[in-house]
Computed example of a mutant assay.
Amino acid sequence: MQPSVLRLADIDGTPVEALLARYGLHLVRVADGQAIPGSYWGEDEAGIIGHEVYARSDTPVHSLLHEAGHLIVLPPERRATTHTDATDSIAEEDAVCYLQIVLGGTLPGVGRVRVMTDMDTWGYTFRLGSAQAWFEQDAENAREWLIARQLLTAAGEPV
């Protein structure tokens, strides 16, 4: 567990729940110390099953946003059957990384910069060396992928 990243317990969960609900998703809070269902990485990392995102109070916010992003980008028929692992391409994974940063910018007490910093702390790797450098200078394909699927406006805001 990395104590330096922002955790669900550190923020107001109500805006997170509202954000997920916008996309037809539901936040399921898991009791502290219990295994998180649908977690690809285990430990304190968020999990996904169908329309539900599972998290504990110690789940990193960036993880919750990333896993929610996987469900958001999926077509309805795939979302309903998703359990734990959702990615089927590098393009989709890049789009999810981009979306998690954008969504973080909509949450009070989080913000894009904090999400990118926490991504770096967790160990995401980008060829430009940081999530922020990737987002600002090298993520045009991910941005276009999201715009083409009407998940992001041309101005870069989530739909």
Rank of each mutant, 00 (worst) to 15 (best):
R56C: 00
T125V: 04
I101Q: 11
W122S: 05
V113D: 15
H70T: 08
Y40L: 09
A35F: 00
G123N: 06
D88P: 00
P75I: 02
H26K: 07
N141A: 14
R112E: 11
A142L: 04
L64M: 11
I49N: 04
V16A: 03
D138N: 01
P76H: 13
E92S: 06
A142K: 12
W41P: 01
L65P: 04
I11P: 01
G38K: 13
M119A: 09
M116T: 05
T82G: 02
D32F: 01
M116V: 08
T82H: 03
L65S: 05
T106L: 00
Q132W: 06
L103G: 11
H66I: 14
D58L: 03
T87M: 09
T59A: 13
A46T: 05
I11H: 00
I72Y: 13
A31Q: 05
G50E: 03
L19S: 04
P76K: 15
M119G: 10
C97I: 11
Q132Y: 03
E93A: 12
C97V: 11
L103D: 04
I101K: 12
E92R: 08
A46G: 05
W41E: 03
E45L: 12
A86F: 15
V96H: 02
R22D: 11
Q150K: 14
A133M: 10
Y23V: 03
T14D: 07
W145H: 12
H83A: 08
T121S: 04
I49K: 09
H70M: 05
